[in-house]
Design a protein around this nucleic acid. Structure first.
Length: 115
DNA sequence: ATCGTGACGAACG
DNA sequence: CCGTTCGCCACGA
């Protein structure tokens, strides 16, 4: 038994979020709740979004934050429409398709999609 | 420790 | 699905 540890205290919740996001395969997308679920806190979807929002410009090319969307399969941004536009562009380059209401078919591009 | 805030989610109606 | 309400978690002041 034991523990073998698994979670060094050095990494904060943010780090876990980034790590999980990096695991998202190209051409797929995950929701905030999905990421939170992987981290062990399925209810921490808000915290996940908070973490991604803290991403720095340099991190944007290190972390595929673009593949993280809300449960509706849409980009949630509120004030940063600039980045929202960028996200859509990046996803389209990966093969993700948006419908007329700017939503993504999670049953088709959803990561860890049970279905 | 408490309060406020936020790229959310689920439950209700 | 939409709008509203509550809850959830983490962070900053």
């Amino acid at each position: 038994m034991k523990k073998k540890i698994s979670a060094p205290p050095k990494e904060s919740f943010y780090t876990k979020v980034y790590a999980a996001v990096k695991k998202i395969p190209k051409g797929k997308v995950a929701t905030y709740g999905q990421i939170a679920n992987i981290l062990g806190s399925p209810r921490a979807a808000r915290a996940v979004g908070y973490a991604l929002n803290a991403l720095q410009k340099n991190d944007l090319q290190s972390v595929p934050w673009q593949r993280v969307i809300n449960a509706k399969g849409e980009i949630s941004f509120k004030g940063d429409t600039i980045r929202a536009n960028l996200q859509r562009k990046l996803l389209e380059q990966e093969g993700i398709v948006f419908n007329v209401v700017a939503q993504i078919d999670l049953s088709r591009y959803g990561w860890l999609q049970k279905k």
